[in-house]
Design a protein around this nucleic acid. Sequence first.
DNA 1: AGAGGGCCATAAGC
DNA 2: AGCTTATGGCCCTC
Length: 223
Amino acid sequence: WQKIEAEGLDCDYAQLFSKEEADNLFQKLEEELVYATGEEATVQVFGKVYSIPRKQATYGDAGLTYTYSGITRMACPWTPTLEDIRDAVTRTTGQTFNFVVVNRYKDGLDHMGEHRDDERELDPLCPIASVSLGAARDFVFRHRDARGKMSGRRMEPVKLELAHGSFLLMNPPTNTFWYHSLPVRKRISRPRINLTFRRVQRCLDRSTMAVHSDRYGEPASQS
DNA sequence: AGAGGGCCATAAGC
DNA sequence: AGCTTATGGCCCTC
């Protein structure tokens, strides 16, 4: 195990699967997984619609949802390989997970911009467990107070490489203080699949919020 | 010196 | 009201 620490950042990194195991899991996932297409594969940023620069899917316990950039999506039922990996992660962490977000990067041009994982529907005390399969990719953390030209503090980004078959546990409060991204790497031509296992607290959807809003009137105060 | 990469601005909408 | 998150452009390094 390798400990990755900085102010407000606490991660554990380890090789979870051998190359042979990881090769096998990657191939099975390539056969089993179905990714979002069409409108479900788009995102709105500053009023413009873009295709997300990767493929994405959500799997998990029945009825759970995941909100990404304002769009709520239902979990597909677990596949056998996802269950196997989930159980391996539970054996090594002692934590249970009811949801996984899958991101597939077909090459080094596919990427993910800087973000934090949406805390509203996540159990804030549950770590996020990330399993990487396929091409190794760089992974970068940046502290929230060190972003932007007018940022108050100078803090170095924390960078690591996520290897084939590796496991990264992001412990609280990492996700509160640190943004993370998977930057473009033009020299990489092979695909990578990343699984982030989470525990979703409850299913908050727009209609539920609308009911509360209608019943209690103006959104004057939050309780 | 051309390519890669880091980081910032964006000013719309949930 | 404040945060989002992809893109393009600018700038730096090798």
